[in-house]
Design a protein around this nucleic acid. Structure first.
Length: 557
RNA sequence: UGAGCUAUGGUGUAAUGGUAGCACAACAGACUCUGAAUCUGUUUGUCUUGGUUCGAAUCCAGGUAGCUCAACCA
């Protein structure tokens, strides 16, 4: 095999293993626990595992790490399968479950006892932690530590048979109660849990701990490089210890990398669950959630997320990625592919005084000015139009080049219009803006060579399609909501304006919008139909991301 | 206050003893029938102190800062 150039530290390890002959192939796994929905942080891990294996001609397994029946549910299994697949990865027939290995893992536990490496301990609750010691003090041996092998074996079998209550005893590895690494102070191997498992039902009442099940699952699947996040670093000695104690050959190697943190985003599964349970958001797939299902509903493509994961790189140092990079990745793709459409989110009426009532004209506009192969479409133009309220100002600041009294702008694809009058109500609110158009400027160019600085979008009043449009913003008001001042809690930083809804006017073709299409509402942003609302037949659009807006940014708040 | 890990512009990531580069962000300008896109340019960096070396972001030692670890969670 031609060994490719490494592009991160994990690939360096792999290249080295291949060159020295420690390994002859690469096999990775993505091992989610089915206790929540996958988020963009998991996407980093998924891309890393699948892309790394692929680069070295290897395979990746999908393995559910389902060793805690009280937290895991089939709903989560289904969502994870859907999300990994949607992201664009194929695990073939290698869909595995730690629970598939329960019998084997149990046998390994018996072997551990037989080899004198594990014992059944009858210490309860607080007594266990009291014996464990602290960071600065060594622990004390359990009184059950040196009980005969035969006795532990008998007890362990009776644990399996259901003879004991939860918490009355547990199986621990016999390592070293004075070890500086707390994970090595006789850690739990098996505990009693009289709970139904989503796959094995009531077959088992004892379940293996992660630290035991994980290295064995990796070994059973002959994983070569077991990639996980940094918090498992201190568990690696234990991972290696179990494999060594059981004298297994071809042992997998655990490698840790820094998990993804994103500004203005919360990545903790527990807290995301809290948002869902407290109805702060509309479920796991709320478009404001960093879940893959949320991003999907928001309009993100799998390729944009893969591109993002590729760009953020992999390292061991904790980091906080600027969410603008994610925005950049989706804009870059949608700019090239999205169908342009004219939409007005906050409409105000314009009347073209010198255009006859009842007369309409077909205007041809490009579907994507940056890619003429995407063709053109016809839109009817008439006397009454909607434009964006923002696009007119009676007393504009300097460098404002949209519509103003006596000012001229181009209506996209149509004509130059000049504002001649503004109608207001008694309170001074603008009711209508009156303009005149220049017939010679049809198509948006004037034969006299006159230039206008501003081009704005418009929607014909009698042809406008009504739709609800939802504008999403950060869910949190601070960059790092997980790390808040002492007198505050993370929920204090929820953004009250994370979803704003408006009643918009759209050009006629949007009545036929489809779920699979992505649209750029010109000068506003990228939008897609909401998957939930469109099931109910409603025309509801989600804003995926705004267009960059250097004008808005330059304006004082 | 024990152990482990980490430290490169605002952010993320390269450079593997030999010119500190790329991307995002920011800023300025050009262009523009999207104040978008595109193009050009600019600002900003090796945590610190020593040592080894002709030469150190890289190797060594001390310091500093951050993260992780005392579930019968994963």
């Amino acid at each position: 095999m031609n060994i490719p150039e490494p592009s991160n530290f994990i690939q360096e390890i792999i290249v080295n293993d291949l060159k020295t002959g420690k390994r002859s192939s690469v096999h990775t796994r993505f091992p989610p626990e089915p206790n929540g929905y996958l988020h963009i942080g998991h996407a980093k891990s998924i891309c890393l595992n699948f892309a790394t294996a692929k680069k070295f001609d290897g395979l990746t397994n999908l393995r559910f790490d389902d060793t805690n029946p009280t937290k895991e549910e089939i709903e989560y299994v289904d969502s994870i399968r859907e999300d990994v697949s949607w992201l664009g990865f194929d695990w073939g027939d290698r869909e595995y479950y730690a629970s598939d290995y329960y019998e084997q893992i149990y046998d390994f536990a018996e072997q551990l006892i037989l080899k004198g490496h594990a014992y059944v301990c009858e210490l309860k609750g607080e007594a266990v932690s009291a014996h464990r010691g602290t960071h600065t003090e060594p622990g004390k041996n359990s009184p059950w530590r040196d009980r005969p092998v035969a006795e532990s074996l008998d007890l362990f079998r009776r644990m399996r048979a259901g003879e004991f209550e939860e918490g009355s005893c547990f199986l621990r590895a016999k390592i070293d109660m004075a070890h500086p690494n707390m994970n090595m102070r006789d850690p739990a191997v098996y505990r009693i849990k009289k709970a139904s498992h989503h796959r094995t039902g009531d077959k088992w009442c004892i379940y293996p701990m992660y630290d035991f099940a994980h290295p064995l699952s990796d070994w059973i699947e002959q994983i070569t490089h077991s990639i996980c996040t940094l918090e498992f670093e201190a568990h690696r000695p234990l991972y290696d210890w179990f494999l060594e104690a059981l004298e297994l050959k071809n042992r997998p190697q655990q490698i840790e990398f820094a998990r993804l943190n994103l500004t203005y985003t919360m990545m903790s599964k527990r807290r995301l669950l809290e948002l869902v349970q407290n109805n702060v958001v509309m479920g796991w797939s709320d478009p404001r959630m960093p879940t893959l299902s949320g991003l999907r509903r928001r309009g993100y493509s799998p390729s944009s997320i893969r591109e993002f994961c590729d760009r953020i790189g992999v390292a061991k140092a904790d980091s906080m990625v600027d969410i603008n990079l994610l925005y950049f990745c989706i804009r870059e793709e949608l700019n090239a592919t999205a169908q342009r459409a004219m939409a007005v989110l906050d409409p105000i009426k314009v009347v073209i005084d010198n255009w006859e009532e009842g007369r309409f004209e077909e205007i041809e506009v490009e579907n994507n000015p940056g890619d003429l192969s995407q063709g053109t479409r016809q839109i009817l133009f008439g006397r009454e139009l909607y434009i964006e309220r923002d696009d007119f100002m009676e007393e504009p600041p300097k460098k404002y080049f949209r519509l103003r009294p006596d000012g001229e702008v181009r209506l996209k694809g149509a004509y130059f219009v000049k504002c001649v009058r503004v109608d207001k109500d008694a309170e001074g609110n603008i009711l209508e803006i009156h303009c005149t158009y220049d017939p010679a400027s049809r198509g948006g160019e004037s034969p006299d060579g006159r230039k206008v600085k501003g081009t704005i979008q418009w929607v014909s009043v009698p042809h406008a399609v009504n739709a609800e449009v939802r504008l999403f913003n950060h869910l949190f008001t601070v960059e790092d909501p997980a790390n808040t001042p002492e007198d505050k809690v993370w929920l204090d930083f929820l953004n009250p304006n994370s979803m704003l809804t408006c009643q918009a006017k759209l050009e006629p073709m949007m009545a036929q919008a489809t779920m699979s299409d992505r649209y750029q509402f010109m000068r506003l942003g990228y939008f897609c139909l909401d998957s939930e609302k469109s099931k109910e037949g409603g025309l509801v659009f989600n804003r995926t991301v705004e267009l960059k807006d250097s004008w808005a940014k330059a304006q004082p708040k």
